[in-house]
Computed example of a mutant assay.
Amino acid sequence: MANKLQIEGQEYATSNKYGITPYFKRFIAECSYMLGEEESGMPIGRLPERSRYIKSEDILYEIKKIQQEQILGDGYVYEHIKRGMPKEQREQLRNSVKMNEQMEYMKFAQEKYSNGETTLQMLDDYIEPDALYLLDEPEVSLSPANQILLAEKINKMSRFLGCQFIISTHSPFMLGTLNAKIYNLDSRELQETKWTELENVRYFYDFFEKHRNEFK
């Protein structure tokens, strides 16, 4: 989706080294989408510029950045590389006062926040009003309580900030809290379904039912 929509965070797949057919590019070319209409009925012309694809790897990388001091500098510079900063400016940045200040901030965050709190703070920093966000398993590293808190945050951002989210998740806590349409990607027709009917969720239910007496 991110590649077809050409939004920040998109990834590029390389061709199979044993063949010359660009399967990924062909697949993207064959995909299509529609942007729908405004509340006034006018067609939406383009996606908001702030739209972004946030992967679970991005979240884990952010956590790693503030947990390991030796990669703080590389992580900070990495963010500027993604934005197209030239090599000469990167070297200047490494020795700048601004970078030292940012590293001190991240060291403070390492002491102040748990992994889950760091994830929630990261998403707060990334997400802006009136934009589309693709979230890939945002519950990574979050406790059940924080997964529910994240889902509640997403509900509020959708309602009050005009954001739209497309989320890939296996979390029953997220699925049961989000006010969202749920599609079962394992079904042949990609049908809309209730969260309680998903195989992954049923597995949790059956497991706890099996151990019901142990909770008494």
Rank of each mutant, 00 (worst) to 15 (best):
A2S: 15
A2H: 14
E8A: 11
Q10G: 08
E11G: 09
A13I: 10
S15Q: 08
P22T: 04
K25T: 06
F27C: 14
A29N: 11
G36K: 04
I44V: 02
R46I: 03
R50N: 08
S56E: 12
E62S: 12
Q68P: 09
E69A: 14
E69D: 15
V77R: 07
G84L: 11
P86R: 12
E88K: 07
R90L: 08
Q92C: 00
L93T: 05
N95E: 03
S96C: 00
V97C: 00
K98L: 03
K98H: 00
E101V: 01
E104T: 00
M106K: 02
A109H: 01
Q110G: 06
K112S: 02
L120T: 02
D125N: 03
Y126G: 07
L132T: 04
L132N: 05
P138A: 09
P138M: 05
L142H: 07
E152Y: 00
M157D: 00
S158Q: 04
R159G: 10
R159S: 10
C163A: 05
L175G: 06
A180K: 02
Y183S: 09
N184I: 06
T196E: 12
T196C: 09
N200V: 13
V201M: 13
V201W: 10
N213S: 09
K216C: 05
K216E: 07
